[in-house]
Amino acid sequence: MGGLPTNKTVYAFAASPTNPKIMFAGLREGAFRSTDGGESWKKVAKAPRDVAAVAFDPGKPEVIFLGTASGILYRSPDNGATWQRQN
């Protein structure tokens, strides 16, 4: 159980459109992923910090977009394993 940093604001949240137990949470400390509906979370190793928004691509749910508070957008083509800066 657990896995999110304690007493930290969660700024962003998104659940997969096809498997809703897969979720991403965005914090200043980074992005976190759950595969059990939020019961447990693991830090997404290669995601940036300062996450302000996160969204799944409804047409390609393995694709996740992530925006930082400073306006940088990242795209992951592989469920969060790797991330490419877009702008």
Binding site: R49, A52, K60, F65, T68, N87
Partner: peptide, 29 residues
């Protein structure tokens, strides 16, 4: 977790400013 996140920094702003929300359209991506 604190140790694992230490040292990462966000890049500079690119005109769009402080970001709050993000949506991907299901029709055209």
């Amino acid at each position: 977790l604190a140790l694992s996140t230490f040292g990462e920094t966000a890049g500079p702003s690119h005109d769009i400013g402080h970001l709050h929300a993000l949506l991907v359209s299901p029709t055209d991506g």
